[in-house]
């Protein structure tokens, strides 16, 4: 029924974006998202859009998975555009019953909507081209400097990795338990809210019991192999910056410079 769930949106590939160091990708996306909020005119948005599309083209992804990411938020985008269109004061563009759209609102709405779309585009490019494991590795390395102020970087990354690892296992198990209870006449689909929530008990109790058991086993297995947190731990797969990472960094610097320049000089 729900076996083999793909985790996240990762689409394996060999493109240059796929092969970028995960740290580079995370940082570039962070910079991109930050600079989105600096942009305040059409030229800057055009530049950002061009950068995003160039990144997209370099991933060599088919349009389908990318659009799927956007589909889940189109409602939010439309709502943002509409709210801005009708709620911003300014010269009237047109009327719709008691609502009147304003010119300022149209511009604001387009910018806001565009901002959201670009935000989703950038973050999905990251998750589409980076496996969850790479992502957590990258995060761990990036958080390293903050350990001084008490951020448990390694522990956070390990928890994420384990959580990701067990999602498919738990989904499979939930599926199995659900079927077993259905075979005993359980009904998960009908009745009012209260009944439906109560009908989840026979599913959730066994699921928790087994999750705890698995956690226990895993902890034991890790301790048996002398795991003691990130202390002095070496890794099999080392992250290394390559020339292409430098390229990505330079491109982002250029983007930042461009957007800042356009904000200072360009028409508002």
């Amino acid at each position: 029924m729900i076996r083999n769930v793909p985790i996240g949106q990762f689409v394996p590939g060999r493109s240059i974006i796929h092969r970028l160091d995960p740290r580079t990708k995370i940082l570039v996306v962070l910079v991109y998202v930050a600079i989105l909020f600096v942009a305040n005119n059409a030229y800057a948005y055009a530049l950002l859009l061009a950068f995003g599309l160039a990144g997209l083209a370099l991933t060599r992804l088919k349009p389908r998975p990318v659009l799927r990411g956007l589909r889940s938020v189109w409602f939010l985008v439309v709502l943002t555009v509409l709210l801005n269109l009708f709620m911003t004061p300014g010269p009237t563009l047109f009327r719709l019953g008691p609502l009147h759209a304003t010119q300022t609102g149209a511009v604001m709405g387009l910018f806001m909507g565009g901002r959201l779309v670009l935000l989703i585009l950038a973050t999905s490019l990251l998750t589409l081209t980076t496996s969850p494991i790479d992502l957590t590795d990258g995060l761990e390395r990036l958080l390293q400097p903050f350990r001084r102020v008490g951020v448990p970087a390694h522990e956070l990354a390990m928890m994420m990795t384990i959580a990701l690892r067990f999602i498919p296992t738990l989904v499979e198990e939930a599926d199995k338990i659900m079927k077993a209870q259905m075979a005993r006449g359980a009904d998960f689909m009908s009745g009012n809210i209260v009944r439906r929530v109560r009908s989840l008990v026979p599913l959730l109790v066994p699921l928790f019991v087994s999750a705890f058991r698995r956690a226990d086993d895993l902890a034991l297995a890790m301790e048996a192999r002398c795991y003691r947190g990130g202390l002095n731990r070496t890794r099999m797969r080392q992250l290394k910056f390559m020339p292409r990472d430098l390229g990505a960094a330079l491109a982002s610097v250029a983007l930042v410079a461009g957007v800042v320049y356009l904000r200072l000089q360009g028409p508002s």
Partner: peptide, 17 residues
């Protein structure tokens, strides 16, 4: 048919709740 055919899964003790 769910009344007539009783299905017992592998490790059925995992469904006790």
């Amino acid at each position: 048919v769910r009344r007539k055919v009783g299905l017992i899964f592998q490790y059925p003790e995992q469904q006790l709740f």
